[in-house]
Amino acid sequence: MKCKGFAHKYGDHIDTDVIIPARVLNNPDPAALAAHCMEDIDKEFVKRVKAGDIMVGGLNFGCGSSREHAPISIKAAGISCVIAENFARIFFRNAINIGLPVLECPEAAKEAAMGDEIEVDLDNGAIHNITKDKHYVAAPFPPFMQKIITAGGLVEYIKNKRED
């Protein structure tokens, strides 16, 4: 599976409070959450984002609260995958569980700039920054996690297991 879109670039330690503030968590509807995604650090994000776009972060992306609303809001905003130098563990786990692809690739994350056109091949972790004409490869997922991803998230994975 391939994703292609423009980069929305952010810095280190992007926390789940800025991804989706608690004041809007009273409505967990994905579309309602998407309307407020990133608004505390980037008011233009929701206006700028187009389906398929790619979010790029630095170190420890998604730190803080365990709110699954954070990856849900990013996915519902149209982001096809998140590339970061690395991720906070709960966010990483939540993203995999809800079927939002997350790739760890320090070089690709550092070198990408806001608005760069990026193509990602999720099957092999190949990242192509088209604007800069540079190629990278993200760290592969452990086989166990790949099974959850292939199933389309933890819900489907558990469902399949129950049916076995």
Partner: peptide
């Protein structure tokens, strides 16, 4: 340890 809602559901 803290997890998200889907892990809680599972």
């Amino acid at each position: 340890t803290g997890v998200g809602s889907t892990d809680m559901a599972a």
